[in-house]
Design a protein around this nucleic acid. Structure first.
Length: 487
RNA sequence: GGCCCCUUGGCCAAGUGGUAAGGCAGUGGAUUGCAAAUCCAUUAUCCCCGGUUCGAAUCCGGGAGGGGCCUCCA
């Protein structure tokens, strides 16, 4: 029943058949944010993509579990909290709240758990202890380091020899380390810093160990999908992989998926570049679905150039769907949401079935959302053409043709739900529109204009329309009457 | 310096061996009193040079341009 899914695996650098450890189940771990500054657009790329992947896997019959961690203890948090004269906890809570709001706005509700580093200190300590006793790590003056030379495979994820890594020679010099490439599992606390007690003295976890500990705690020693931004491939994921497999002796993740990075002005968007677009600010100006659609319009491994122009362009393309929904609503005399989603695509109509198959195949090929989205445009064009060919706007009685339209809408709702976009009525409505006053006034104006048109008083009719346009209201004379849209 | 990736129409973007999806913008047509919306049509020497092949955007080699990682980063 399940379609064959192909996935690009960073570890092997090729597309592979997607097979999970337990048939029918998928465990997914995606690296989340370090919560010290509000989320920028780049931070949401991963969540949007992996949310979409989970939706699709669910649609294909998998039972998927998705976990995204929150890094709530880290040097950057300590610095930022000190700068703002608040505690690390206060800072983490505030920024985590911002992150959750962004996720909610973007329709990301599929994440099953958000484990926090600070809530997994016992697991982290246990893991470090075992790594030390297995000679994969060593304590050194209050710190604990992972011994890179103890791992034969080190470098396999990013396809590099340890010597090449050292050749970079930009690794921080630290005489507590045996090898320059060794990385901290535990960092001894300096005076005034937050700390947890440990056998090696007071301190805090290193950056990478939390993900290993939390991934294993919630999903087991081998997970199916480990995801994150391309910039995490090294050193973060390489180190996670090394310490996890040294710890368990088992493969840490079956598939490593890395999403491309958001760029602004040719450069990667990042806090350190100082070119980041804060999501909460952006969402004041643009619907969240537009941002989501922008990200899904290209392949997840490609870099995305962010600009407001792009966002406006995508928003414009999305209007086609909203207009279509309104058009269908007028034909069926009910909101389009009243049309159920059958989720099985068992339309008798061959053309609809073929379109649906194209979508599933696009998604099955390494989650090609851009290609899948184009299928949805084709579907709407097909259905608009269907409406015109069969004059469904003029003859609204129930006919086989109308039923096929409804089949098509059901499929559109089903498929767009996988991408998490194109939901009806999600465009921000003008609040005035809901209180009935505008509606009443518009009815009056349209009636007056209809009278003028009847008398062939076109200058007056056009004056009304032009003036409304300048107010941001467009009139549309349709076969079944005049309608209006507020921009 | 090392490792990796990208380059498709005005812009964005699918497409890994059989002669180019889709979106935005533009143009022409249908429709309309005129528009809008919708539909139809239309816009590509696939960065350059060479090679492999009956056949390449797709594979190989070289070149140019751009990006990522090697340090915190989604």
């Amino acid at each position: 029943m399940q379609n064959k899914i192909r996935v690009y695996n960073t570890l092997t650098r090729r597309k592979e058949d997607f097979e999970t450890a337990i048939p029918g189940k998928v465990t997914m771990y995606v690296c989340g944010p370090t919560v010290y500054k509000p989320s920028h657009v780049g931070h949401l790329v991963g969540p949007i993509i992996f949310d979409t992947i989970k939706r699709f896997l669910g649609h294909q019959g998998y039972q998927a579990t998705l976990i995204v961690n929150i890094t709530d203890i880290d040097d950057k948090l300590i610095v930022e909290a000190a700068k703002r004269k608040i505690t690390v906890k206060q800072l983490a809570d505030e920024i985590t709240g911002d992150y959750f709001q962004c996720l909610k706005a973007l329709g990301i509700e599929s994440i099953d758990r958000f484990p926090k580093a600070t809530e997994h200190i016992p697991e982290i300590l246990a893991m470090i202890s075992k790594l030390i006793s297995d000679s994969h790590a060593y304590a050194s003056a209050g710190d604990v380091y992972f011994d890179v030379s103890s791992d034969q495979d080190y470098g396999k994820l990013c396809n590099r020899d340890p010597e090449q890594l050292e050749a970079g020679a930009r690794i921080e010099l630290n005489d507590k380390k045996r090898n320059p490439g060794d990385f901290a599992l535990w960092k001894g606390a300096k005076p005034g810093e937050p700390f947890w007690e440990s056998s090696w003295g007071p301190g805090r976890p290193g950056w990478h160990i939390e993900c290993s500990a939390m991934s294993m705690r919630w999903l087991g020693e081998t997970i199916d999908i480990h995801g994150g931004g391309l910039d995490l491939q090294f050193p973060h994921h390489e180190n996670e992989l090394a310490q996890s497999e040294s710890f368990s002796g088992k493969p840490f993740a079956r598939f490593w998926l890395h999403n491309g990075l958001m760029k602004t002005g040719e450069k990667k968007m990042s806090k350190s570049e100082g070119n980041e677009i804060v999501v909460s600010e952006l969402l004041k100006k643009y619907p969240a679905e537009t941002l989501r659609a922008l990200i899904l319009s290209s392949h997840y491994r490609s870099p995305i150039e962010f600009s407001e122009n792009r966002l406006i362009e995508v928003g414009r393309s999305l209007e086609t769907f909203q207009r279509f929904y309104e058009r269908v609503g007028r034909i069926t005399n009910a909101p389009v949401t009243a049309i159920p989603i059958w989720n099985q695509g068992n339309s008798d109509n061959e053309e609809l079935a073929a379109i649906r198959t194209r979508f599933i195949e696009a998604m099955s090929d390494d989650f090609n959302t851009g290609s899948a989205l184009s299928v949805l445009f084709d579907l709407v064009t097909h259905l608009n053409r269907w409406i015109e060919t069969h004059k469904l706007e003029k003859d609204k009685s129930s006919t086989p043709q109308l039923n096929i339209l409804i089949d098509g809408v059901s499929i559109l709702r089903e498929l767009s739900g996988i991408l998490g976009i194109l939901s009806p009525n999600t465009q921000t409505k003008n609040p005035d529109e809901t209180n009935g006053l505008v509606e009443g006034l518009m009815g009056l104006v349209i009636e007056l204009r209809a009278l003028a048109r009847k008398e062939k008083n076109y200058p007056t009719a056009d004056l009304i329309r032009t003036r409304l346009t300048s107010l941001g209201i467009s009139l549309e004379d349709r076969p079944d009457g005049t309608g209006y849209r507020i921009e």
